[in-house]
Design a protein around this nucleic acid. Structure first.
Length: 751
RNA sequence: UGGGGCGUGGCCAAGCGGUAAGGCACUGGUUUUUGGUACCAGUAUUCGGGGGUUCGAAUCCCUCCGCCCCAUCCA
């Protein structure tokens, strides 16, 4: 596999963990719940999980997360397996099921109870919800939380045996009903479901909840990186809690989240998809308009195109909406290089070539000059042919390249024709064109000297085969569809009597074709019959003509400028205000720095302390409010490896001009990590700054000599490049050159 | 008592203190017997806004704004 240059954040984490020896081998998993057909969002997840495993010589398990027997079914298991296989991934010798771990999971639950970390709660559903509290209010603990370990054990055992009705009891973790993260307010671990499970049958009356089952299943399988979507971020706390409380032998898995895929003009949630399937708006889970893997497969998308798409969209934590055109590009890009071209007329208009009598077979390559593949077919040519209705216009708009009364056109692979006469029916519709062909204009042997602007597809009337063509368009007309009201009424157009050149049907050189000038099509894997061929449109070709036409009658979109309203800054309390006044008035700090310091108790006391050692209020304030503040975001003052004394020492050197700001940052970094004193660090690394121009100038000369292009650009007015040169000089002195001096010198030399 | 995330062109997305990558889309042009493909060129003086630190900030600090997720016995 070719690795792209830019690693995504997950791969960066995996690489680090492998390097540090946290894991010997990377192990991921793709853990769908078998309660629906997988869609392209799953494909993204599949690519991530299997892709990472492949990239780092690890493995990825396919695991059915089948903990909720009420919605799950074995038919979905099959669909999931199909999807993974179709995309080309290998899940090894067997598919995993969470249900295979039910016994182990139960044992872990017992262990938690014995540790006093879990209890059987007997509140009803509504009470549990009420007790949980809200976003802004604490929850309160159930009175049942005080049950003894024996009681809990006994109850759980009986729950398992099926002695209770659904909802009578649940098992909950004993964490913290006041947690700001609502997920941590004693989450449910098990619930009673007296229902048959599609794999375990009636063996169990209780089923583990996601939060309990998932982390432990990962652990049981030896997963290293448990990758899921963003909405599980809050659940990570439980994931960690369960694994940590159980005191399991390390290594244990960690959870990481990425943003799920969204594409415009479609829906991706299983709920909405199921609604379309059940509601009959689509023909099934494999309806070619659906973003399901089965749908794309049926429509004619290739696995490679989906894989490529997943690669192109990247992996991040930012919620985003990918444009369908990105997907469409991927399938066109893939098919362009490999499928045979053929001619198919969707909306036939009869053309009689009056000066042609007889018949010939024209030999034509299946591939255009820029596709390096071999293969050709015979195309019958005769007096009566059909062309596409829209390839003739009596009164053409400007820029129309096809057949008109005055403008000849080439019949692809064949002759040039000229329109002689238009035949109409009684209501004035054009029903036929009488034309003449130019005998010397045969494709490849053209000596006619006639110039045409385009070549159009056609079929010979007698030999053409009738086919059904299903034209698919986006399912929804709204970019962000809400429901059925946003459905595109024209998402499916069935053309029963399209005409196709016979070789496509007789020889079937492929399953996918480009119907020239129209798009890519796929022989429907289910409905296609030799006597009644059916083709699905996969995607249109790009069409700059229709775009141009549309442009003429569409207004440019109005620019939206968002005005940003500034909120009010929280007022300072009295003590903060006093400090602020002191900092600005007595020490001469600017208000921003004073503000940062005054509002943070830790920072201000740190500042005061360092100020008592070194009387340099402004420099100290700058370092404390910027660098120290950053460290204090991660930890408490007492956890810091450095003290106010270190900082004043650092600032002293800065004030002395012994070191530059740039060096100070380096020193600070080392100090944070090691706790060494700044003086020590400067000595160790010989970080004294170089300010002597005679020492710096030769380096500048060298940089200038090495970058003639950039010198030219700079002189041409690209003043941003000054930073580039300064940077280069700084780099070659290990950051030791005095940047102020370098800046002056570089500016002077480049004048 | 709220918490957790996220903001870089029209859409994705690199970048992590030293010249704002790349892809899609778009616009021109070249090639072309597909108005396709391929190729070339163009498109962000600026990274949600405002301040601050720095010789230098998309990157560090402060602050404000805007989105998303969480109160299923779903996953």
């Amino acid at each position: 596999m070719i690795m792209s240059k830019c690693k995504d954040f997950l791969r960066s984490i995996v690489e680090e963990d492998l390097k540090s020896g946290k894991y010997r081998e990377v192990a991921t998993r793709f853990p769908p719940e078998p309660n629906g057909f997988p869609h392209i969002g799953h494909a993204k997840s599949i690519c991530i999980n299997f892709g990472i495993a492949d990239d780092y010589q690890g493995h990825c398990n396919l695991r059915m997360d089948d903990t909720n027997p009420t919605t799950e079914d074995t038919k979905y298991v099959e669909a999931l397996k199909d999807a993974v296989e179709w995309l080309g991934f290998d899940w090894g010798s067997s598919v995993y099921f969470t249900s295979d771990y039910f016994l182990q999971l139960y044992d872990y639950a017992v262990k938690l109870i014995k540790m006093g970390k879990a209890y059987v709660d007997s509140l009803d559903e509504e009470e549990i919800r009420e007790y949980r509290g809200t976003i802004t209010e604490h929850g309160r603990r159930s009175k049942y939380a005080d049950r003894t370990i024996e009681e809990n054990l006994n109850l759980l055992e009986r729950m398992k045996k099926g002695e209770f009705k659904d909802g009578e009891h649940v098992l909950r973790a004993k964490i913290d009903m006041a947690a700001a993260n609502i997920k941590m307010r004693d989450p449910l671990l098990y619930r009673i479901r007296n229902i048959k499970h599609f794999r375990t049958g009636d063996e169990w009356s209780i089923y583990p909840m996601y939060d309990f089952a998932h982390c432990l299943s990962d652990y049981i399988e030896g997963i290293s990186h448990s990758i899921c979507t963003l909405e599980f971020e809050n659940n990570r706390a439980i994931y960690d809690w369960v694994l940590d409380e159980l005191g399991l032998e390390l290594p244990r898995p960690y959870q990481y989240e990425f943003a799920r895929l969204a594409i415009n003009y479609t829906v991706m949630s299983k709920r909405k998809l199921l609604k379309l399937v059940d509601g009959g708006q689509v023909s099934g889970w494999d309806d070619p308009r659906l973003p399901t893997i089965a749908g794309y497969k049926r429509r004619g998308y290739t696995p490679a195109s989906i894989l490529n798409f997943c690669d192109q969209i990247g992996i991040t934590k930012a919620n985003s909406m990918v444009d369908v055109s990105q997907l469409e590009f991927c399938i066109r890009d893939d098919l362009n290089k490999q499928v045979p071209r053929a001619m198919c007329v969707l909306d036939p208009l009869k053309v009689t070539i009056e000066n042609y009598d007889g018949y010939e077979d024209i030999d034509a390559s299946y591939y255009p000059h820029d596709v390096p593949k071999e293969g050709s077919r015979k195309i019958p040519f005769s007096k009566e042919i059909y062309i596409e209705r829209e390839d003739f216009i009596e009164k053409p708009p400007k820029g129309y390249f096809r057949l008109t009364m005055e403008q000849p056109v080439r019949l692809r692979h064949a002759y040039i024709i000229t329109c002689k006469e238009v035949i109409r029916d009684t209501s004035g519709n054009i029903i036929e064109i009488k034309a003449e062909y130019h005998p010397k204009s045969k494709s490849g042997l053209d000596t006619s000297g006639i110039k045409v602007k385009s070549a159009i597809q056609w079929v010979s009337a007698k030999e053409a085969k009738k086919v059904e063509v299903r034209l698919y368009d986006r399912l929804f007309s709204a970019e962000l569809p809400e429901g059925v009201e946003d459905l595109n009424p024209n998402s499916l157009q069935v053309i029963k009597n399209a005409l196709i050149e016979p070789a496509v049907i007789a020889d079937r050189p492929d399953e996918r074709f480009q119907f020239e000038r129209q798009g890519y099509f796929y022989a429907d894997p289910i409905d296609y019959r030799d006597e009644k061929p059916v083709f699905n449109k996969i995607v249109s070709l790009k069409d700059s003509w229709s775009k141009k036409k549309k442009e003429n009658n569409s207004e440019p979109r109005a620019q939206t400028t968002t005005i940003q309203i500034d909120g009010e800054v929280a007022p300072m309390n009295e003590a903060e205000q006093t400090l602020f006044d002191k900092y600005t008035q007595k020490y001469g700090l600017n208000s921003e720095v004073a503000n940062t310091l005054a509002r943070d108790e830790q920072l201000s006391s740190f500042y005061e302390e360092s100020l008592s050692i070194l009387s340099s209020p402004v420099s100290l304030a700058n370092i404390v409010s910027n660098e120290v503040a950053r460290e204090l975001k991660q930890m408490e003052v007492k956890e810091l490896k450095f003290t106010a004394k270190h900082i004043s020492e650092l600032v002293k050197m800065l004030d002395d001009d012994t070191i530059s700001n740039k060096i100070a940052k380096q020193v600070f970094e080392v100090m944070v990590k090691t706790g060494k004193t700044p003086i020590q660090i400067v000595e160790d690394k010989r970080l004294i700054q170089i300010s002597d121009p005679s020492e710096i100038e030769p380096i500048i000369d060298k940089v200038i000599a090495n970058n003639p292009d950039n010198v030219a650009k700079f002189k041409a007015g690209n003043s941003k490049l000054l930073g580039f040169f300064v940077g280069q000089v700084l780099k070659s002195t290990g950051g030791k050159a005095n940047p102020k001096i370098v800046n002056q010198l570089v500016a002077k030399k480049l004048q």
